[in-house]
Design a protein around this nucleic acid. Structure first.
Length: 575
DNA sequence: GCCGTTTTCGGCCCGACTGTTTTCAGTCG
């Protein structure tokens, strides 16, 4: 049983308790589920190495839940949980997940209408059976029908970059049609999560009502979920939900903190505030006793008042590291300005859209001191992979233009890792390349043991420097390779191989939990754009966001090094 | 069920909006 399966089970236990109206336990189980879901290590591994003590050390997991988990890990079942879940089918949990339906409504619907599936709920709604229930009405009935439609469409999380663009366009619209004094996106977008569920926007304005009206009547709004004087929610015609919140100026910092989340982070700092004699809400920080406001004009000043260092949005997740931030100083996270070059780029030689010269020029304009040109290798037919002749022609062109640029051009290749783990160019060619990036581009569904063998063999090749987009996922289209990543990370670490954090919006690979795990194995990283055109150098920020979410500092990332020191990791770069 | 720089017992973040009901429970973030 893996972490996500365990988390799902714990969530269903929470559902079961919630349906029964039990207090506090649902929150406790959800917290535990969340904790397990966000874990960088397999729970089974933790248990193997550290026993029950290792589990209890995790946030939100105490003796009782730890014992259930152990039973589940060892036998696949837990008596207590099995009997609880008998009362709550999968579809009961699904009904509770419908927008606007919580435990109370779900219980009433299930009990009074004797429901056992979403389909039956839909039928009941269509037959007008819901509106007659006490506490329900016509409006609720039609809301449930719509919620079912939305549920069936599936509320997919979308790639960060897509949602960033979406939020920017809404912010632009609001700036154009209303006059907000301040406006920011918040939520998981601001925390730079690789996928984003909905968009949260915060504004400060003198006319909140007017702004809410502008917002809910934007041309792209499909329907309005809520429309109040300070808070509204809409669903756009592409299915993206957007929440807008307006606060007065003196509350802006506290509101930004609150609206950025994560939910668990909010709960923790609000509880901490209470312990220190304060009340923290989106309106500000107040004394607990007489509710006197304490002037805080930035998030930083709020954290400071609570005795904390400033926690960057990317770190506001509960990963059991909150305590570290209260005691020691936080690490200085890697920033875009730290990067000295991009080690993974494509040109028109293979499947890029910009010429070699144009790519180098843009990299130089960005202030980089080196760029690796890494077009595809021969087997990547779809990507116009380079034959040996064309590869040599590329080297010639690099030699010819090198003098025109201040920036150093590194000869590289993104070499396919073939099915058997061999690299796609002969060794005598690989030895002449300054940077060899290995990547899997086909046969993703091989059995796990064969995939591990394939990757291990590639990582053991003396010429392979970097493993590109290691999990091979494409957000929303292809899941990550189903393998034991820890094994791969260990091989990479002990052979000084670099793992890539790929910044392509659809990849965002490695994922932050994998980065954390890999870093703990002793791996170094490089953050690359995998750019296929000059405009794609701008993607670098997405990879930086992932790295920051995984607590990476400059020292963890090799392309923050100047060329002279980069040779430590890429030894074939000539003087 | 979890947790503790007041606590091993008694708390558990806080406020807006909706719909149904006439003052608020339920839901959401």
């Amino acid at each position: 049983m893996d972490n996500s399966e365990l988390a799902e089970l714990l969530n269903r236990v929470a559902d079961a308790y919630e349906l029964q109206g039990v207090e506090w336990k649902p929150a406790a189980y959800r917290k535990a589920a969340n904790s397990v879901q966000n874990l960088e290590q397999d729970l089974l591994e933790i248990y193997r190495f550290h026993g029950i003590k290792g589990l209890i050390e995790l946030p939100g997991i105490g003796k009782a839940i730890a014992e259930h988990i152990i039973e589940l890990l060892e036998t696949g079942h837990s008596k207590k949980i099995d009997s609880l879940l008998k009362k709550v089918s999968q579809s009961h949990s699904e009904i509770m997940q419908l927008e606007g339906v919580g435990p109370k409504k779900a219980y009433k619907l299930i009990e009074e209408l004797q429901l056992s599936s979403i389909a039956e709920l839909k039928a009941a709604a269509q037959q007008g059976k819901i509106r007659v229930l006490k506490g329900f009405g016509e409006k609720t009935e039609s809301n449930i029908l719509r919620a079912i439609e939305m549920h069936l469409q599936g509320k997919k999380r979308r790639p960060f970059a897509e949602m960033l663009k979406e939020s920017q366009s809404i912010i632009d619209y609001l700036k154009q049609h209303a006059v907000p004094q301040k406006i920011d996106y918040a939520g998981s977008l601001r925390r730079r999560k690789d996928t984003v569920g909905d968009i949260d926007i915060l504004v400060c304005t003198a006319q909140p009502e007017e702004l809410m009206k502008t917002f809910t009547s934007m041309p792209r709004v499909d329907h309005v979920l809520a429309h109040g004087s300070t808070k509204s929610s809409v669903v756009l015609n592409n299915g993206v939900q957007v929440d807008l919140r307006a606060v007065p100026e003196q509350s802006y910092a506290a509101a930004l903190l609150y609206f950025t989340g994560s939910k668990e982070h909010n709960i923790r700092i609000r509880a901490l505030a209470n312990r220190k004699g304060y009340l923290l809400s989106e309106y500000g920080l107040f004394t607990l006793t007489d509710k006197k406001p304490i002037a805080c004009n930035s998030e930083k000043s709020i954290y400071k008042q609570l005795g904390l260092h400033y926690i960057p949005p990317e770190l506001r997740e509960v990963r059991g590291k909150f305590e570290a931030t209260t005691i020691a100083s936080l690490p200085v996270l890697v920033e875009q300005a730290d990067l000295k070059g991009d080690l993974h780029t494509h040109t028109t030689f293979s499947d890029g859209n910009s010429s070699l010269q144009a790519m180098v020029q843009r990299a130089q304009d960005m202030g980089y001191s080196y760029i690796a040109i890494t077009d595809h290798s021969i087997s990547a037919r779809i990507a116009n992979g380079l034959s040996l002749d064309r590869l040599k022609a590329q080297w010639e062109e690099i030699d010819n233009i090198a003098a025109k640029f201040k920036i150093r051009i590194l000869k590289g290749a993104e070499v396919d890792i073939l099915k058997d783990g061999k690299l796609d160019y002969p060794d005598e060619i690989l030895e002449q390349l300054h940077v060899v990036i290995g990547a899997i581009h086909s046969s993703f569904k091989m059995p796990a043991s064969e995939l591990i063998h394939r990757l291990t063999r590639a990582l053991l090749h003396p010429c392979l420097d970097i493993l590109a987009h290691p999990s091979c996922r494409l957000i929303g289209r292809r899941g990550p390779l189903q393998i034991d990543y820890k094994q791969v990370f260990k091989v990479a670490a002990s052979n000084n191989k670099i793992l890539e954090i790929n910044s392509q919006p659809s990849r965002m690979d490695l994922h932050d939990t994998h980065i954390l795990q890999a870093r703990d194995s002793g791996v170094k990283f490089c953050i690359n754009t995998d750019g296929h055109g000059t405009d794609e150098f701008a993607f670098m920020g997405y990879g930086i966001g992932l790295a920051r979410r995984a607590w990476l500092t400059k020292n963890d990332v090799i392309n923050t090094l100047p060329l002279s020191k980069l040779r430590r990791y890429l030894p074939r770069i000539p003087q």
